[in-house]
C-alpha cells in the first residue's frame, strides 16, 4: 500500500485534477449502464444479466454507423436507437415469458442471450477486436489546467453523461410518464388495475434501459477496443454500482457510480493491484451499514 503517493497526490493540484477527472469519466460511463439496469429492476423486478451485452451492441452499432456516415454524433444516436429497439424486442419476445419466475430462470435466459449475442457479434463484425478511432473533432491536444492534462474527449464524455443523467431525472421525477413508471415500480398490479397499460410500459422501460446502455457503448467506442464479450466487465461493475446505490434507484446509481469511479481512480494510487477489490470492499461496507443500498426505499 502506497499511502505516501496518495498524500502526495492529494497535495498536488495537477494530480487531484487528473485523478478526479479520471474518476468522473469512469463513473459517468458506469452510471449510464447501471441506471438502465436499475430502472429495469425497479419497474420489471427483473435482473437483466444481459445488460452488459446491450452495452456491447451499442458500441458495435456506433462503429457501423460511424463507418457509414463518419459522423460521431449520428453514431451515438444510432447506437441508442438500435439498442433501445433491441430492448423492446427483448422484452416482447423473451423477458415477458418469465415474469414472476425465480431468479435462476432470469439468469438462464439472460446468459443464453449473452452467448447468442456474443456469437452474433462475432458472425457480423468478426472475432478480431475493432477500434472506432477518435473522431476528428476531438483529435486535439489535451488542455493543460493546474499542471494536469485534460483530454477534450473526456470532458465531452462527462458533460454528455451529466446531461443524460439530468434528462433521465427530469423524465422520472417531473413528467406524467415518470409518475406512471414510479407507480408501476411501486405496485405493478395496482397500476394495471387503475388502467395503466403496464404491458406497453414494460416494453418501453426495457427500451429506455437499452437506450442508456447503447449511449454508454456509443460514447465509449472511440477509446475502447470492441470485441465480442466486452460487456462482461462493465456488467460486473454496473452491478456493484446498482447494489451500492440501491436496486431500482436512479439517484443511487448516479451517486454510487461517482463513488466507484473515484474509488478506482484514487484507489489505484494506493493499491494499484487491488482496485477491483476496493470496489467490492466499498460494496461490502455499504451492505453491512445499509443492506438494501444507499438510496433504496426498501426496509433494511
Amino acid at each position: 500500500m502506497d499511502f505516501s503517493s496518495l498524500i502526495g497526490c492529494v497535495s498536488s493540484a495537477s494530480c487531484m485534477v487528473t485523478q478526479s477527472l479520471s474518476g468522473l469519466t469512469i463513473g459517468m460511463l458506469l452510471f449510464l449502464v447501471a441506471s438502465g439496469l436499475s430502472l429495469i429492476f425497479g419497474v420489471l423486478k427483473i435482473t437483466n444479466f444481459a445488460h452488459g451485452s446491450f452495452y456491447m451492441l451499442g458500441a458495435y452499432f456506433a462503429l457501423t454507423v460511424y463507418q457509414v456516415t463518419n459522423n460521431y454524433f449520428l453514431a451515438v444516436c444510432g447506437a441508442a436507437l438500435g439498442v433501445g429497439l433491441f430492448g423492446v424486442l427483448f422484452e416482447r419476445f423473451l423477458i415477458r415469458r418469465i415474469y414472476g419466475s425465480n431468479v435462476l430462470m432470469q439468469l438462464l435466459l439472460s446468459y443464453a442471450v449473452i452467448l447468442i449475442l456474443d456469437d452474433i457479434v462475432m458472425l457480423v463484425w468478426g472475432s478480431e477486436f475493432q477500434s472506432m478511432g477518435m473522431p476528428d473533432l476531438f483529435r486535439v491536444p489535451p488542455i493543460r489546467f493546474a499542471g494536469a492534462y485534460i483530454p477534450v474527449f473526456y470532458l465531452f464524455l462527462i458533460v454528455a453523461a451529466f446531461a443524460i443523467a439530468g434528462g433521465l431525472w427530469f423524465l422520472i421525477e417531473k413528467t406524467r410518464f415518470g409518475k406512471v413508471v414510479r407507480a408501476a415500480a411501486h405496485n405493478g398490479e395496482m397500476a394495471a388495475a387503475l388502467g395503466i397499460n403496464t404491458s406497453l410500459l414494460y416494453s418501453f422501460t426495457l427500451g429506455l434501459g437499452g437506450v442508456l446502455a447503447g449511449l454508454a457503448g456509443g460514447l465509449a467506442a472511440p477509446v475502447r477496443s470492441l470485441v465480442p464479450g466486452m460487456g462482461m466487465s462493465i456488467l460486473i461493475e454496473s452491478f456493484i454500482v446498482t447494489v451500492i446505490g440501491g436496486m431500482g434507484s436512479i439517484v443511487g446509481a448516479f451517486v454510487s457510480a461517482i463513488v466507484i469511479g473515484l474509488t478506482r481512480s484514487f484507489g489505484g494510487i494506493v493499491m494499484p493491484e487491488f482496485t477491483d477489490g476496493l470496489m467490492f470492499l466499498v460494496m461490502v461496507i455499504v451492505l453491512i451499514v445499509k443492506p438494501t443500498g444507499l438510496f433504496s426505499k426498501g426496509r433494511d
Binding site: 479520471s22 469512469i26 475502447r224 466486452m230 466487465s233 481512480s265 494499484p272 482496485t275
Partner: peptide, 15 residues
C-alpha cells in the same frame, strides 16, 4: 487482462 480503461496507468506514467 481485458481491462477496458487504462486511465490509471496513463496517469501514473504522466506523473
Amino acid at each position: 487482462i481485458f481491462q477496458p480503461d487504462y486511465t490509471d496507468v496513463i496517469n501514473k506514467i504522466l506523473q
